Simulated assay, not measured.
Amino acid sequence: MPIITNLDVMMAKRKVSLKELADRIGISNTNLSLLKTGKVQGIRYRTLDAICKELDCQPGDILEYRADDD
């Protein structure tokens, strides 16, 4: 899939653990872990908004488009 999730990079830059971020934004560790690893089909704007507020970043810092090599 050409959409890459850089959530782990932003979390490392902000020194925030998975559990800490999940607690702050009100989602389960499992769901945040799936999002972090890119194993989800979509993300709610509400969740993306909460992540961006907590990590003080833009959606483009978390999501990246890379074209396939086709």
Results as ranks from 00 to 15, higher is better:
residue 1 M to A: 08
residue 5 T to D: 01
residue 6 N to W: 04
residue 7 L to M: 12
residue 9 V to W: 13
residue 9 V to F: 12
residue 9 V to E: 15
residue 10 M to P: 10
residue 13 K to W: 06
residue 15 K to P: 02
residue 16 V to G: 00
residue 16 V to E: 02
residue 16 V to N: 02
residue 16 V to Q: 01
residue 16 V to A: 02
residue 17 S to F: 13
residue 18 L to M: 11
residue 19 K to G: 08
residue 19 K to Y: 07
residue 19 K to D: 10
residue 21 L to E: 03
residue 23 D to N: 05
residue 24 R to N: 15
residue 24 R to T: 15
residue 25 I to A: 01
residue 25 I to S: 00
residue 26 G to S: 00
residue 27 I to N: 00
residue 28 S to N: 05
residue 29 N to Y: 10
residue 31 N to K: 14
residue 32 L to Q: 07
residue 33 S to G: 12
residue 33 S to K: 08
residue 33 S to A: 11
residue 34 L to S: 14
residue 34 L to K: 13
residue 35 L to W: 05
residue 37 T to V: 14
residue 38 G to V: 07
residue 39 K to Y: 06
residue 40 V to Y: 15
residue 40 V to M: 10
residue 42 G to I: 14
residue 42 G to T: 14
residue 42 G to C: 15
residue 43 I to N: 04
residue 46 R to G: 13
residue 46 R to K: 10
residue 47 T to E: 06
residue 47 T to N: 03
residue 51 I to M: 10
residue 52 C to L: 02
residue 52 C to F: 04
residue 52 C to A: 03
residue 54 E to C: 03
residue 55 L to K: 02
residue 55 L to H: 05
residue 55 L to M: 04
residue 55 L to W: 07
residue 55 L to G: 05
residue 55 L to T: 12
residue 57 C to M: 00
residue 58 Q to G: 08
residue 58 Q to S: 09
residue 59 P to M: 06
residue 61 D to R: 04
residue 61 D to T: 15
residue 61 D to Y: 07
residue 63 L to T: 13
residue 64 E to T: 15
residue 65 Y to M: 10
residue 67 A to E: 11
residue 68 D to V: 11
residue 69 D to G: 02
residue 70 D to Y: 12
residue 70 D to G: 09
residue 70 D to N: 07
